[in-house]
Amino acid sequence: MPTLILLIISNVFMTAAWYWHLKGGPEVANARPIAMVIAVSWGIALIEYCFAVPANRIGYAQGWSAGQLKIAQEAIALIVFGVFMVTVLGEAVTWRHFAAFACIMAAAGFLFLGK
């Protein structure tokens, strides 16, 4: 459970680091100086790493494989991004988002099957 909680927190920061600067649309995003966007994103990503690295170490010590840790992270990232996309960026969720989610969840299922 600590692994999943840390991965969720990590992914909230990761999503913010990668996509915060898109809020407001292309005109607003393009008006932000790229060097400033990169610097702010790196600062946010540092916080993300402070959660991701312990999550992976704890999970690995508890018997998760590297592949299981990665696919769990991807599944969590998709959920967190979906919420961010709708609530912060104001974009709609389509059937393609659900299809992609199903594929990632199937991949997670394959790696955890029989564990």
Rank of each mutant, 00 (worst) to 15 (best):
Q62H: 09
G109M: 14
A16P: 02
L4S: 07
V93A: 10
A100H: 11
A99I: 02
E91T: 00
V28W: 04
L6R: 11
A61T: 00
T94H: 15
V37A: 13
L7N: 09
F101I: 06
I34V: 11
R96V: 05
H21K: 05
I104R: 09
Y60W: 06
A61F: 00
Y49G: 03
T3M: 15
A75C: 08
F110G: 01
E91M: 07
A31H: 05
V53Q: 12
I5M: 15
G114E: 15
K115P: 01
A100Y: 13
Q73I: 04
F98M: 06
T87E: 14
E27P: 11
F112T: 05
F110I: 06
I58H: 07
G82T: 11
G67N: 14
L7V: 00
C103H: 02
M85K: 11
L69W: 06
V28I: 07
N56S: 10
L46C: 11
I76T: 04
R96P: 01
E91I: 00
L78I: 07
N30I: 00
H21L: 02
I8Q: 12
M14L: 11
A61K: 11
C50H: 08
K115H: 07
N11L: 07
Y49I: 08
I8T: 14
L78H: 06
V93I: 11
I38R: 12
N30F: 01
A66V: 10
F81L: 12
L4I: 07
W18M: 07
V88C: 02
G59S: 13
A35N: 12
E48F: 13
M14E: 13
A45K: 13
G109Q: 11
W42R: 13
W20T: 02
Q68F: 01
E48W: 13
M36H: 02
I71C: 12
Q62E: 15
F110E: 09
I9G: 06
H21E: 08
I9P: 02
C50M: 15
L78C: 08
A72C: 14
I34S: 08
T87V: 12
V80Y: 12
G24S: 15
A72N: 14
F98V: 02
N11T: 01
A75G: 03
V93Q: 14
V53A: 12
W64C: 04
Q62P: 01
A39V: 02
N11I: 02
A92H: 11
A29Q: 13
L4R: 00
V80P: 08
K115T: 05
V86Y: 10
Q68C: 06
